[in-house]
Nucleic acid binder design. Sequence first.
DNA 1: TTTGGTGTGGTCTGGA
DNA 2: TCCAGACCACACC
Length: 814
Amino acid sequence: MHIDFFLTDADYIVIDNKPVIRLFGKTEKGESVIVKDDLFKPYLYVIPIISVKEAKKTISDLELFDKNNVQVIIDSIEIVKKEVDGKSQEILKIFTQTPNDIQRLKDIIKGLDFITSIREFDIAFHKQYLFDNGFSPMTWFSVDGHILGEDSYADFVVIASNIKPKISKSIPKLKIMAFDIETMQTKEDIKEILMLSVATNTGLKKVFSHGKSTFEHSEPVKDEKAIIERFKECIITEKPDFIVGYNSDSFDFTIIKERADKYRIRLDIGMAGQLLTIQKRGMTSAAITKGFVHIDLYQFVFRIMRTTLKSETLTLDNVASELIGEKKLDVDFDKMYDDWKNKRDMKDSARYNLHDSVITLKLAEKILTNISALSKLTGLVPFDSSRSTYGQFVESFAMKKAAQLDVVIPNRPLSDEISNRMEQAPIEGAFVATPRAGLHKNIAVFDFRSLYPSIIVSHNIDPFTFNCSCCKGNPKNKVHGFSYSFCTKKHGFVPTIVEELVMGRYDIKKRMKSLDILSEEYSRLDMDQYAMKTVSNAFYGYLGFAGSRWYKRESAESVTAFGRDYIHKTIAIAENLGFDVLYGDTDSLFLRTDKNIDDILNTFLRDVNKILPGIMELEYEGHFKSGLFVSKKTGTGGAKKKYALLDDKGNMKIRGFEKVRRDWSHLARNTQEVVLQLVLSDKKDEAVSLVKKTILNLKGGKVDLESLIIFNQLTRAIEKYTQKGPHVSAAIRARVAGIDIVPGMVIPYIITKGSGSISSRAVYAPFAKNYDPDYYINKQIMPTTLRILEAVGVSEDELLGKSKQSGLFSFSKK
DNA sequence: TTTGGTGTGGTCTGGA
DNA sequence: TCCAGACCACACC
């Protein structure tokens, strides 16, 4: 038979000493399918010091026993030609029967003196399968095979005789099931499940509640055990491609598992009947359901999206309202517990509970497109890519490409090696120009298109093109200020694959221009190009990352050195053409352009691009009618990484200022924003009166507490702090009051009236009853607005109403 | 198990 | 009471 299917997950099992890859997915008709492949064999590479033939014979003749004196059987040995650390050579590919044998084999042969290196023993078997075959998750495959009469939740199981990727643009309608639970702490460390809701993108809405509920989507069941059983039934009958939750790794599924264990419910909710497992990963855990893939949206938001969000905290409420414009419902938890205990109607709680699942579902529909694009690009299954860091994306992409390009993957560094790398002094980074403080008119902004990736490509920067013997003394590719150079003859692996990303991305962006922004095709391409940007931008960091397989300190150092060199050269060209260089950071340049001088700008752009090699390019970013830089608080000169620009349409672009920092109160942030807007529009008097008015409001106690909350993250356990700042003090007192405080939490607090240090008056926001006007005037409003107003000549006294012209307040300073 | 470095500025701490 | 330096969080790229 023949089928097409869309791959969403993969794992492997070992039956009768034979590994079988299982691919999970969905057919065009929407059936769920498991495709088995038992033709792939586990292997590792051995790089011998002696001839490969000799090494092959020697190893073949050995009897290999592991530390438990159990023999390891070698299935076969092949001599293959591969690129090892930049050099093409013949090596041994040794196959064993099971993936587990690979580990044992490696441990046995690692001491043999004719072996220089053993490779690719540390890659999960199903990943190696996907990489070697060039199979990407979240793409289509066509399969020949026959149906097995095997028991599973899938609509059918196929044993494949042939699997091929299939080019297809379409993405099938995947079924997403969002879920959420409400719990109650009934004992010291026991949380009981009161209700559980599910919502699917095919219209199912259900709340299973222990207790009475007349909510239209409620299905009251007799006890907690029944809630879990109904949830399980729901998964099995719905067969969702993705089961999504928010913080469901460490909360929902962890509790469901604990409670299921208590009632001896078998949570075999994988597509092939696999059990739900909670995998401990250091501090956190991951809840694994194979086939019906569990995605914890919070994990992806936390690891990948966090920096792009404005939300002060990463709660479902904040993230959903920022990304999809939906808020959670209000609920009174005390009432919920009370209703439950007294067996009253729990319809309000049920409505709240379901609503959480519904917004989780909507969020999933948005975020899963990102996760899918990253999976497709890097070869990680969505389960992994939704829980990956930037480093893991780069690594997986590189490993996938290595398999395609016959490159042997470097081993993951051992912990000793990692600590060695970490002990090195940090490498020198980018150049940041000191800005000219003040208000400037007519600013042209330029930046280098993908600076670091384009340097890697254009200068062939790779761990193994470094100081090559073949072009010693060739000045063409030397690094300014270092005795480093990179090969000009042989294209390195890293530059090759980064180029594919960079150029592939430009290609996609070009195609997008001819498409309707609202079309599905457009948004899919947008996700694809974004994934490529994410991975290519992280490559430089990966070269200098201690845990990297492709670590090369000198290469990372060279990337930044080239970057500094180019920005300096570009500044020199601008100055030679008579421009005032106002500012620049890493890859950007701000020039003052007195009038309409398009010609000179074009000359500048052309002159710079003339000296740029390869795919490097300086781009014109845009024109701004005014821009502001402020002085540093301490020291001299303008403050770097802080500026505000006003474009010709009146839109402001604010960087670095307190306005964009969550550790400042909304009052200060919002006031600063308006002040910036007014100052950039030459209305400084209005700005001054706004600040004065704000100060009066504060003094008069007219400001609501909400806008005075300051958010700070607790980056470690409270006990680990040597210096207890306001957020730590507030957290300590909140904990005493019974609030659950965990590392990573963002603490909201307000500085209240009283005497003593600021910390001693920092109160966890929900508990705060008043605020200290002096603190908010002197430590929030003044610093954030004064430095801006000073840039246009307003003094502190003037702002405080103490200058001569405002006679009304012309008292002495004391 | 965390892609890298550069930079600002608040608060605390301890010594003068 | 003042101040420098350490600590800390969060931004930019």
